[in-house]
Amino acid sequence: MASQTDSRTIIATNEAPRAIGPYSQAVHSGNLLFTSGQVALHPETQQLVEGGIEAQTTQVFANLKAILEAAGSSFASVLKATVFLKNFDDFAAMNAIYAEHLAAGGSQPPARSTVEVARLPKDALIEIDLVALIPS
Score class of each variant (00 low, 15 high):
Ala66Met: 09
Val131Arg: 09
Asn31Arg: 02
Gly30Phe: 05
Ser107Val: 07
Tyr23Cys: 10
Ser74Met: 13
Leu68Met: 07
Gln25Tyr: 01
Asp123Phe: 02
Ile11Phe: 11
Phe91Ala: 13
Ala92Cys: 02
Met94Thr: 04
Phe84Gln: 11
Ser74Phe: 07
Lys86Leu: 08
Asn95Tyr: 06
Phe91Cys: 06
Glu15Leu: 14
Asp123Met: 05
Ala76Val: 09
Thr13Phe: 13
Ala62Glu: 13
Thr58His: 13
Ala118Ser: 14
Pro17Lys: 04
His28Lys: 08
Leu68His: 04
Pro22Gln: 12
Asn87Asp: 10
Ala26Asp: 06
Thr82Asn: 15
Gln56Asp: 03
Ser107Met: 13
Leu130Phe: 01
Asp129Arg: 06
Ala55Asp: 02
Ala96Ser: 13
Gln47Arg: 12
Ala19Arg: 02
Glu44Ile: 07
Leu64Thr: 03
Arg8Thr: 08
Val27Trp: 03
Ser113Trp: 00
Glu127Lys: 09
Gln38Lys: 12
Phe84His: 11
Ala99Gln: 12
His42Gly: 04
Leu79Asp: 09
Ile20Phe: 07
Ala76Pro: 03
Pro22Arg: 14
Leu85Gly: 00
His42Phe: 05
Ile20His: 09
Ala40Asp: 02
Ala76Phe: 10
Asp89Tyr: 00
Pro109Val: 12
Thr58Ser: 15
Ile128Pro: 03
Leu102Gln: 05
Val83His: 01
His101Asp: 11
Leu32Lys: 04
Asp123Arg: 00
Val39Ser: 04
Ala81Asp: 01
Phe34Pro: 02
His101Ala: 12
Thr35His: 03
Thr5Asn: 10
Gly106Thr: 07
Gly72Arg: 02
Val39Gln: 03
Leu64Glu: 05
Ser113Gln: 06
Val115Leu: 09
Thr114Leu: 15
